[in-house]
């Protein structure tokens, strides 16, 4: 993969491939049925992945501050919880784009290509509809977490001495991810409908979830 234009190549840092690396070390592309949108999700995924590393660093820092300097931070646990939560939520979208969610494929496996395509379409539609409902519900939740009853903007905070607006931010983030999830499933539906029967089945078979 060529380095992206806005990211000049650094001589001392080994070039990082744009594609995710699979456990066995080989890059695996986003399934084509996920469309451009799926690739966009993939592009920004490393930000959230690095959040886990940051969380680790913060916990180590907290242990250090508490044990060596006897001055524990008030923000470490809240912040790591927040970073992990962001990663978990985004991870759901990431797995949806990469077709990595676990499935039980008893019927799917014995189905012929036509039925398999019908299943793919049906599952994507149902997932799109439910994600849409959840996005709407998340909006109702955000309305309570981001605004005061009078209508002024006030992000819900943790209420601790550190009092970061993490609950408000996380709820807003959930709203965005659920909207993105809905869009992703709509795109999957469209692409499964468009695809020829034999093509759809073959393509969706790339996920780990499939037996």
């Amino acid at each position: 993969m060529a380095p992206t234009p806005e990211k000049p190549a650094h001589s001392d840092i080994p070039p990082t491939p744009d594609l995710a690396i699979e456990p066995d070390g080989t890059p695996e592309p986003v399934p084509t049925v996920s469309g451009l949108f799926g690739r966009a999700v993939d592009k920004i995924s490393s930000i959230f992945a690095l959040g886990f590393l940051l969380a680790m660093g913060i916990l180590i820092f907290e242990i250090f501050m508490r044990h060596v300097f006897n001055s524990p931070t008030l923000w470490a646990h809240e912040t790591t919880t927040f970073l992990s939560a962001i990663g978990f939520v985004f991870g759901g979208l990431y797995c949806a784009s990469r077709n990595k969610h676990i499935r039980v494929v008893i019927i799917y496996d014995i189905a012929g290509p036509r039925f398999r395509r019908a299943l793919d379409i049906g599952i994507s539609i149902v997932c799109a509809i439910s994600s849409g409902f959840f996005a709407w519900a998340a909006w109702l939740m955000v309305k309570r977490a981001a605004f005061k009853p009078g209508g002024d903007i006030h992000l819900e905070t943790t209420g601790s001495a550190f009092n970061a607006p993490y609950p408000g931010l996380l709820k807003i983030f959930m709203l965005f991810v659920l909207i993105a999830l809905t869009i992703q499933f709509v795109i999957l539906t469209i692409n499964y409908v468009r695809a020829k029967p034999d093509y759809a089945g073959a393509n969706s078979g790339t996920g780990t979830g499939h037996d």
Binding site: F52, G87, F88, C95, K100
Partner: peptide, 13 residues
């Protein structure tokens, strides 16, 4: 980290 994101996405969801 990316693998962690993917695996946790599955596990937590």
């Amino acid at each position: 980290s990316l693998q962690t994101l993917s695996t946790c996405g599955m596990i937590v969801w």
